[in-house]
Design a protein around this nucleic acid. Sequence first.
DNA 1: TTGTAAGCGTTATCAC
DNA 2: GTGATAACGCTTACAA
Lengths: 354, 354
Amino acid sequence: MISLILFNVEFSKSFSSLLPKWYNLLMPSIKDVAKIAGVSTATVSRVLGNNAKVTEETRQRVMDAVEHLNYRPNLIARSLRVQKSAKIGLVVSDIRNPFFTEIGRAVEDAAYEKGYSVLMCNTDENPEKEEMYINLMHDENVAGFIFSPTQQFGAKLSTFDTSIPIVIIDRVVNTKQADMVLLDNVAAGYDLTNHLIENGYRKIAGLFGNASTTAPERRRGWLKALREHQLKPFAEYAIPPKIKQGYDTALALLNQSDRPDAIFTSNSLLTAGALQAIRGCKLKVPDDVALVGFDETTWGALVDPPISLIAQPTEEIGRTATELLFQRIKDPTRSPKTVILKGTLIARGSSAKR
Amino acid sequence: MISLILFNVEFSKSFSSLLPKWYNLLMPSIKDVAKIAGVSTATVSRVLGNNAKVTEETRQRVMDAVEHLNYRPNLIARSLRVQKSAKIGLVVSDIRNPFFTEIGRAVEDAAYEKGYSVLMCNTDENPEKEEMYINLMHDENVAGFIFSPTQQFGAKLSTFDTSIPIVIIDRVVNTKQADMVLLDNVAAGYDLTNHLIENGYRKIAGLFGNASTTAPERRRGWLKALREHQLKPFAEYAIPPKIKQGYDTALALLNQSDRPDAIFTSNSLLTAGALQAIRGCKLKVPDDVALVGFDETTWGALVDPPISLIAQPTEEIGRTATELLFQRIKDPTRSPKTVILKGTLIARGSSAKR
DNA sequence: TTGTAAGCGTTATCAC
DNA sequence: GTGATAACGCTTACAA
């Protein structure tokens, strides 16, 4: 793999000129280079892969030919031959969730530095799409991929092909085969709920996503904190983690005669939906109802009052996942690692002391 | 191409079962299928590509073998052979810009429906990365790609390889070779500015991105509206279209003794930055300073007061771009189309009548 | 309607 | 240190 990496870096340097108009008409192959340099294709390959010894003189001749022809190796052919590619996959459930957007960005950066490109796929929390994209990962010969499976799919995952390096992020999967990068969700839910309780809220409703293992864990923390204070859950819902469902559910909740004094949401899409509902009911945050959630977003600090939340270290999660992936690519037998990161409570106006 | 599409759809149906553990150990090839079915590889290929005639009986035998072996064709090998793939590219400048996130989502949906997957790349407004990803598009044999180039890169684009179908989105490029899907940015800037003027604002500052052609066009509309009302630009800045730069610039602007009474921003990242700055200065929107921008985001309607803006039909832009791309893939000689879509002014509290 | 075989552009094995 | 050459798994003339 190392040679591949070096290789790519070298190329992005040497052939940074764009493809001229006529390029694909006479797209030069390794044969053309060999002919011009007066060597065999094997030698050209050796020079480019710079893993075998060649005399400096032939190396130079080859490089000249390469430059002269503006040659760039055919990645597809190479991939067919070596059954690998300088590509990694990123399979997430919802690219519109700012959490995953940030992850995507971090992964892309980390991969780019190593000369890898990223095949990014959106499963929409749909197991059928997940399946098809996992197959695609295989078919595209990715070196490995980063994945946040739905609950249903995660359960199946351990039964299947383990030959391709995988790093699971965000969600627990019951397999000892894959590396994982997770948040300590129970602690996060616990901290966030404690914060509400300490600030005087008692009738705390919970809106939880129903697609991942993340939400149930955050719920566990929520329950634990409530229990420790002899409080009962005011109400709770397990719903699709989308803005619309957050809105609908919160609206119904707030229209009841007995309202909660705080809403706990398990992700930022639900937070946004709940906030819309609160606005729709012309209620005041936090006087009528407090609102807390997860993930720092563009808007969390901009709304008035700003939202109290548990911030996840998205950049770190993305980078860590990518690094674990590259480690496993380099050494597939290495025993799996699970990295658990802590969230940070950011207390703001939406849960101010009452 | 049609055959490829059908092909893929067929496969995603027939082989929806996941790869079993042992799969890659004995990853069956077309040869294995041929052997089991008692036919030649050519026949297997014909059955799978269902473009040539085969007797129903052999077709059945082949399909049985395929199912029995859990065979799935090797996309890389096929791609090497036919010099094409069921993949399209999406090269955008900043995946964290909600506009592009939405586009990405729409493109992914549209592509999925046709059995294509999407290679998504983030250039970070960096011409070097753009170049490398354009090369990658070539190297990955994508069927075509959707691209929002930086100004610098867009200028070069027409000089280069035209063999691969491209659809430009969001930004004008001076080439007659590519299809484009654009917003009527001059009109949008004009409408948004007129709206401010009608509501009584006179000292209107402008924060414009410096990476794309979009911002200068919106600026033209802004200038036109001002001129028609005998107003002078209060101040204007061309800056990198990022939250941080929006914040810094707006902060400096607001700390001057003579403050604008309205800030016009050319994209939502700048809007967010400007809003942060306004909050930082403890100023009231819109009483102290109005704020308007572009693109409907999760937060635009949630902040208080909500932001007035020009909404772009992102879903439509993404779908249209993908459709144009598929049309061009099917018929590469077809004369290029430019689709210009209108934005919608959404007037809200941040620019209320004074 | 079906089979044979060439070839897509690489890399890796084996000679020399 | 270098060159032939056989794969990698597929599609597609061309034959039969």
